[in-house]
Write a protein that binds this DNA or RNA. Structure first.
Lengths: 154, 154
DNA sequence: CCCATGTGATTAACTTGTTAAGTTAATGCC
DNA sequence: GGCATTAACTTAACAAGTTAATCACATGGG
C-alpha cells in the first residue's frame, strides 16, 4: 500500500501486535498440542474442561461449572447433555431450590478422566519443557494480572 | 473432596493455573471491552479482524487472509460471503491461477473501517492505560516468544 | 494429450460461541 | 394469597471453530 494512501488512516495498532490476536494465536498454538489426544478419545476441548473442573470440586451447579470451565451457559447445557448421554456425568436437582441442578462425575467419568490424565499431563510437561518453566510461570502470573486489572471494568 | 479420594488421582495442574484456560480467560476479558462497539455496528470480532487485515495489505488471497486474521479457511469462506453481501469487500480471480481469489476492501469498506477505527483505538488505549503500557508490551513480547517456541513443534 | 497428483477454495456436518427469548422456580411486596 | 420481579437454566437462531470431503484448477510425467 502506498504512503499516499496511508496518511488519512486513523491509527490502529498493527493487528499482530495486539492483545486480542496475540492471545488468540498463543491459545491456538498451545491447543494444537492437545487436540490430537482429545480427538482420539472423542473429546472436545470444552467437554474436557468441564470434566476437569468437575474432578476438582466434585459437585457443582451449572452456573459455577460454567464459570469454572469458561463456557457460557447455553454451551454448557449442550455439553451436559452430551456428557450425560455418554454416561460420564450424573445430574440431580437441588432439593432446596428446584431450579438449581447438581452435576457430578459418574464412576465411569472418574475412570475416564484418570485414564486420560497422564497423557494430558505429559503434553503439558512437554510444553513446559519447551517454553521453560520460569517463562511459563511468569506468563501465567502476568495473564492473571491482566485479568485482574481489566475484570472490575473501569 | 476428601484427601483419601485425592491420593489415587493422577497429577493434573489446577485448571485455572494452566495456559489454555488462562489464555482463554484473558482473551475473553479483553474482548468484553470491544464487543459492545462491534455489536453496535453489526460486526463480529472475526469480521472485524478480516477487515483490519485487508486494510493493512490491501489485496490478498484467501489463504493469506485466513492466516493473517487467524480464522480457518471454512470460516473465512462464510465471512467473505457476508462481507461481500454487505458491500464491504470485493472479489476477483487471479488471472494467472483460476483457483486463487483476490480479496480487497471496497470504497464502502474503507469508509466503514475508518469510521470505526477511532472507537477501536480508543478502547485499546483505555486497556493500555488500565494495564500499563510497559506490562502490556512485556506481555505481547512473551506471548510471541511462547508462539515462536511452540510453533515449529518439537 | 491424458492422467495422476497436488493445491486453493468451498461445502458438509457437527460442536461451540453469542445474544435473545422462553420456562420454571424462588422471592418480595401489597 | 396474588402478582410482579428476579434467578437458574434451557431453547432458539445464527455466526464461527473444527474436521473431513469435494470441487476446480495447476502442474508434472507418461
Amino acid at each position: 500500500m502506498s504512503d499516499s494512501a496511508e496518511v488519512h488512516k486513523v491509527s490502529l495498532a498493527r493487528t499482530h501486535r495486539t492483545l486480542p490476536i496475540a492471545l488468540l494465536r498463543a491459545r491456538e498454538t498451545v491447543m494444537e498440542r492437545f487436540r490430537p489426544m482429545l480427538h482420539s478419545h472423542d473429546m472436545t476441548e470444552q467437554q474436557w474442561r468441564v470434566l476437569r473442573v468437575l474432578r476438582e470440586s466434585d459437585e457443582l451447579d451449572a452456573t459455577a461449572l460454567a464459570a469454572g470451565a469458561c463456557v457460557l451457559a447455553p454451551s454448557l447445557s449442550r455439553i451436559i447433555k452430551a456428557l450425560e448421554d455418554r454416561g460420564l456425568i450424573e445430574l440431580s436437582r437441588d432439593p432446596s431450590d428446584g431450579r438449581r441442578a447438581k452435576i457430578r462425575l459418574s464412576d465411569t467419568g472418574h475412570a475416564f478422566i484418570e485414564r486420560l490424565a497422564p497423557e494430558s499431563a505429559g503434553i503439558y510437561k512437554e510444553i513446559e519443557a519447551t517454553v521453560g518453566t520460569a517463562r511459563l510461570e511468569t506468563l501465567l502470573t502476568e495473564l492473571e494480572a491482566l485479568i485482574d486489572a481489566l475484570k472490575p471494568d473501569t
